[in-house]
Amino acid sequence: MRGRVAALALASPLALILLAFLLVPIGTIVVVSFFDYDSVRMFPAFVWTNYEELLLSPITWKTYLLTLWFAAVTWAICLAIGFIVAYFLAFHVHSALMQTVLFLICTIPFWTSNVIRMISWIPFLGRNGILNSALLSMGAIDQPLEFLLFSDFAVVLAYVHLYALFMVVPIFNSMVRIDRSLVEAARDAGASEWQVLRNVIIPLARPGIAIGSILVVAVVMGDFVTVRLMSGGQSASVGLMMVNAMSLLQYPAAAANAVVLLVVVLLMIAAMLRVVDIRKEL
């Protein structure tokens, strides 16, 4: 009994912070999404107009589709890269020290600024950037490619650059926990390297793949910074739609959009969670 009280006391700061800065704010968004507003302020009310305007506008649907498309493409590329990198680290690097060092090398960029990492693509992708100059001098193109910077291509590239790590870490974490004797057994039974990968490693790495997928999808679905910076204002995302509504002081409209986005993201994650029980994976 005393232990339970102590545990409650120890957990209470976390609970209070999450209550005050996660639950109550989300509650606020839900409440405000029913408020009415004019061009200068919002007033308490209970109207559905914010949702009606949002859901009846074709722009909303187009933006949601575009965001889903960004999420899908980024997810597929991150999965491919993350899996290969994690597989290399977990099964082909044998010294524990080397493994730690290489893993840290992959992790360090995660601890630096995202905005700076986006900016750092400018000298590469710009009209007079490294890539265009290189292609020009090789004679592969005779005019600078315009689509490199400020395009959907640049947006996806930046997403992969920023978030591939979200895939590497959980998959690596699942893979290092795979019992090596299972791999040995499969080999002894005559499985080729490919068969080991398909029938032993991939099924056992599934929880890591699921967690990585959840992280990547969640972060891309809610993004607006990358889309705005990397597309140069030429593309859109749901997050950007919200931020634009906010800057026009249309708080209830932004709030309604936020509620819809939250529902969409939670549904996607619920679907992915059917594959894995996170609590068991820690």
Partner: peptide, 15 residues
């Protein structure tokens, strides 16, 4: 961890 950052920002701002 999963709720988009912009939502939390918006929510706290509105609160």
């Amino acid at each position: 961890l999963i709720v988009p950052s912009v939502l939390i920002s918006l929510g706290i701002g509105l609160m």
